[in-house]
Design a protein around this nucleic acid. Structure first.
Lengths: 345, 345
DNA sequence: CATTTTTTGATGACCGTGCCTCATTTCTTG
DNA sequence: CAAGAAATGAGGCACGGTCATCAAAAAATG
């Protein structure tokens, strides 16, 4: 049960250690025939490079930058906390994770932050991409400079980003639609929709998904015009209050974006919590409590811890030039009811 | 931004390298006062041991044994596949994962397998614990011999196992109850319950949870007597056929255990799929398809990949004598609808 | 105070790979 | 065929720990 080392590979391939090293690290100056010999020996012996030895030997650490919005948004705070936590725990694993709060509503600032990044200070960037064209351009330029970029939570499909770490928002919206359709009775009813802004891609996608399901499978339910509350609690509270009084027969509320606290407050104060199905996104202390209290009926979520870890793995893979195991990096659309809430910390 | 090494710690603490080493690896022969000095230096400098260097230096690998039932059960096959996959990928990380299929219904065989394990051949064991008392005893003896044991998926709370990797089955049952309660209309209805055996702890727990929710929150729904199909597809199919014809007004089916194929077949053939709410456990090719076809309405699942990874992490932590981050090792109760299915592989 | 015991220091040999240099061999090419 | 280019070999240092050994110093003991 002895470990197979490059020595064994060298011997088996009938070449020297140096050559094996050249082949394994794709260094130049090796004939194709020789490469093949080594490859076969690796195959034959089932050589697995020792990650410990490799990690120890290579001097450089992976310097990753995470740009995460710093607004008063519980989910973003979770993301930031997770990123910081991993920055700590991975520091023994040659990982330097820098977390930089950004102002997601100031495209120029974000662009500026991206512009100063460079191969000399950073090996990879994960960014919660605000929906501005100039941000897309900055991502592209960063990629051009040879720094791999992944988008986090919110995508920029048109950009040159190498990968997107997050959920399929159309599917998330469909899930919300399905839950409301099933939770409501067969009688006609109205569904209120609140979004941060339909200019945000993820919000628009969720809306699309929800509409698809409701229109085709629950045609007796009417989707009201989307109200945009800019993910702001106060605005949302106001919007929902007005909706509740304008539509005494309102049967469901779907908050597509953030700012659940406002929606929760409006519904709680109104006293119609039991009659109204309320579905929202992201697990936060507020949505947890609202689920427990019966104010919310379901929460659709993505695990910030998973996303941070996935982003780190993906960036590392991109740095190393090894393929990404798409399968492992798929982020699940979590559905939480009162009953399956993870225990509190 | 230089790395803090044991040298720095030694210097800061005013002791020698050897002493630092003794303290960090809890070797004997150090005064308490000295230990404290070193501890404080570690704290002060925020010394993080280099996992690569440590991994490289220590000769021994972690030899872990995974005992997983080998029946014709898609979930157990997934577990096995994941374990095998990780055995491969972790081999470069000083992890030797042996997967041993066991016959979950033959307590003596399992006991025998556990009995031959020993500190000399294995550093940790994860076992999907069949519900026999002799298995419990074998786990206890193994622990006594100094081999840490974790139970996987199905627990043995009374045993000396160090940890349980799996979901809270009462909560899972409650989730099932909630889903059915909400999916069904307010009119009276009957719910059929199928389990492998109520002698299995996880099945009994799920039943308890489901009953709690239905009885207290949906009293208009009647839970029929639990039918035990031993997780066998043919038996389950038969049972469900009979239930369907005996209860023309049946409104929901909850399969507490495995053997969904049989239940699916019975419901599909009966033609009442659209009217009957069917909730079951574990995501398999069959349950996926049933969700897509509208035969199943929700699947409650646990991620086998997570569970295997968690078990490995926990066993490693137990071997190293470091604390387990309970928070990270909590396995989520996943809820899948047609809409939020992860994409196929 | 001498002796024993405990604690600490000094040192070095690994672990498997990355990475660099220099010498040597083999292949090209005019 | 000679000269130059390309491919390969040989070897060594570094990485940051683990582990073992032996000697020296400090503390406990009678």
């Amino acid at each position: 049960m002895k470990r197979v080392t490059i020595h064994d590979v060298a011997e088996a391939a009938g070449v020297s250690l140096a050559t094996v090293d050249r082949v394994l690290n794709t260094r130049p100056g090796v004939r194709k025939a020789t490469i093949e010999k080594v490859r076969q020996a690796v195959e034959r012996l089932n050589y697995q490079p020792d990650v410990f030895a490799a990690g120890l030997a290579k001097k450089s650490a992976y310097r990753l930058h995470f740009l995460i919005p710093n607004g008063p948004n519980a989910f973003m705070e979770d993301l930031t906390r997770e990123a910081r936590a991993h920055a700590q725990s991975m520091s023994g694993a040659r990982m330097q994770v820098h977390v930089e709060p950004i102002d997601a509503f100031d495209g120029h600032r974000v662009t500026g932050t991206l512009a100063v990044l460079d191969k000399s200070v950073c090996d990879g960037v994960a960014v919660v991409a605000p929906a501005f064209p100039e941000v897309r351009a900055a991502i592209d330029r960063l990629q051009d400079r040879g720094v791999p970029v992944v988008t986090l939570v919110s995508d920029h499909p048109a950009s040159a980003r190498q990968h997107f770490v997050g959920i399929k928002n159309v599917a998330a919206g469909r899930t919300a639609g399905r839950l409301m359709g099933r939770f409501l009775s067969k009688e006609p009813g109205k569904i209120a929709l609140i979004a941060g802004s339909l200019g945000l891609r993820d919000h628009a996608d969720r809306y699309t998904g929800c509409r698809e399901v409701i229109d085709t499978e629950y045609p007796h339910l009417e989707l009201l015009k989307v109200r945009e509350g800019r993910d702001d609690n106060r605005r949302n509270e106001d919007v929902v209050r007005k909706l509740l009084s304008a539509h005494p027969d309102l049967s469901a509320v779907y908050n597509i974006g953030a700012g659940n606290r406002g929606v929760i407050a409006a519904i709680r104060d109104n006293g119609r919590a039991d009659d109204i199905v309320f579905v929202g996104h992201e697990l936060t202390p507020y949505t947890r409590q609202a689920l427990r209290d019966g104010i919310m009926d379901a929460v659709i979520a993505q695990d910030p811890g998973h996303e941070i870890r996935s982003a780190i793995r993906v960036l590392k893979a991109l740095c190393d030039g090894v393929p990404i195991i798409e399968d492992q990096e798929r982020i699940g659309i979590d559905v939480f009811l009162k009953e399956n809430l993870p225990e509190d910390v």
